[in-house]
Nucleic acid binder design. Structure first.
Lengths: 115, 115
DNA sequence: CAGTATCCCAGGAGATACTG
DNA sequence: CAGTATCTCCTGGGATACTG
């Protein structure tokens, strides 16, 4: 596996590339929530612990640009925006599910209680 | 999923926890190489692109402490050290394999040629 | 050969303030 | 409600030098 460049960034392996797309602190939590229904901006903001508007809007924008989610704006007052998972996002959700199950397993392994 | 603390660090979900154990730039590349045979320090150093001694030794130490790999020192001159995967490490390798396949898929999806 | 010790920097993320 | 703009901070990782 040789190095390769995408979007002006250097990668060394496919995992790095995948993580550049769905990694970071908030992208997986967002995709996970959109898994089976549409969510509005404020619902995401209230549901994800500690997330700031800056990080939420930044994460949503990147997921949108990379085609993992879609966005629908309803011209109401007050404005309503809904985010949905796309086909590409659904594949990511499968990976997240695997990672999540593994995480739970590891937590048990390391003696961390799930409350 | 409520927050929880492990090793003085705060986590918000199981994926974060898993990534704290096998994430970062070098842990997966290392585990992946140890998948089916023992490797010496210098072999890893030569095989992993751009890795510095600092990062290699740091990553190995943490993987060792967390039980993903084991280490055997042969009292020869010059010294020889071999690293092996453990049972816990083998489970991680399965996850890495999934992530790796997904990464390749995404690369194709984004039009990145694999050489 | 197989590492450790220091110093340094970039970029991910936090805090706060503001707007159509 | 649904964001964007600034500024700041922290830590993962780079560079370099040294050792049993």
């Amino acid at each position: 596996m040789p190095d390769f460049v995408s979007d002006k960034h250097l990668f060394h392996n496919p995992v790095e590339f995948a993580m550049s797309k769905i990694g970071g602190t908030y992208k997986m939590p967002i995709l996970w929530r959109l898994k089976d229904k549409a969510w509005r901006y404020s619902e995401l903001a209230n549901s994800i612990p500690h997330i700031s508007d800056r990080m939420l809007s930044k994460s949503l924008k990147e997921l949108l640009e990379d085609g993992f989610i879609s966005k629908e704006i309803f011209p109401e007052v007050p404005p309503r925006t809904e985010y949905n998972i796309t086909e590409r996002g659904k594949k990511a959700v499968e990976i997240i599910s695997t990672l999540r199950n593994y995480g739970f397993e590891l937590m048990k392994d390391f003696g961390i209680e799930e409350k």
